[in-house]
């Protein structure tokens, strides 16, 4: 359905914006390494089923792209461009996010198996893993516009999944309460950012009017 496709495209675009930003500016300034490392953990734990379940070529290619690109970004940040910029302000206590997600996955899962717990863990971790990035954005104050476009596209992807889940509930009688709960939490975390982003875009637009 349309929401799902739009969500996936938004996710893809967010990563392309990020890669483009880093390669063009040759700096990873303003990007939270912690958030990017958490994304590697999210994708690897979520997409373990690549090895066991085949859904579609599209699905497999997207999963491989998200795992590979997240590892690549971390490599860019830690190896290629790390000498040019040192992030002192990226100090969000990530252990609470990982610990909290782990606890949530132990409390909420469909089956008490290794892969099901990891799948649930990846949902909760994805919901909160933007927090170090938002924290960094707040600390550095003035953000580059491109960084905010990246965060916006990234947040939009999960927000678009919500109407997709409504649609699937009515058309397929399918309701995944775990995904929906974590997705709602994720979109709530982004909501403040969305508001500020919306205000700024509108404001700039207003200023540029002849």
């Amino acid at each position: 359905n349309l929401f799902r496709i739009a969500g996936d495209i938004s996710h893809l675009v967010s990563i392309l914006i990020l890669l483009q930003t880093i390669e063009k500016g040759k700096t990873t300034s303003g990007i939270s390494l912690k958030t990017q490392i958490l994304y590697v953990v999210v994708f690897v734990t979520r997409y373990l089923d690549l090895l066991t379940t085949y859904v579609s070529l599209y699905n497999s290619l997207m999963k491989i792209f998200f795992i590979a690109s997240s590892v690549y970004v971390v490599w860019l940040m830690t190896s290629k461009y790390n000498k040019k910029f040192k992030e002192d302000q990226d100090v969000f206590p990530v252990k609470y996010l990982v610990g909290g997600s782990f606890v949530m996955s132990l409390l909420f899962h469909y089956k008490f198996t290794f892969s099901e717990i990891l799948w649930s863990f990846s949902l909760w971790l994805e919901a909160v893993c933007i927090l170090p990035q938002l924290f960094l954005l707040q600390k550095t104050g003035e953000a580059k516009a491109i960084t905010t476009h990246y965060i916006f596209a990234l947040g939009l992807y999960r927000a678009l999944y919500i109407p997709n889940w409504f649609y699937r509930y009515y058309s397929e009688n399918r309701l995944d309460l775990l995904s929906v709960s974590a997705g709602l939490l994720q979109t709530t975390i982004y909501s403040d950012f969305f508001y500020v982003y919306y205000q700024k875009v509108l404001k700039n637009w207003g200023f540029n009017l002849p």
Binding site: R4, D8, H11, D49, T53, V55, S56, N59, M62, K63, F66, Y110, W119, Y161, N164, W165, R168, E172, N173, R174, L175, D176, L177, L178, S179
Partner: peptide
């Protein structure tokens, strides 16, 4: 209805 999860998603 079919299965509950949406694991065919990303």
């Amino acid at each position: 209805g079919g299965g509950k999860t949406v694991k065919d998603e990303l």
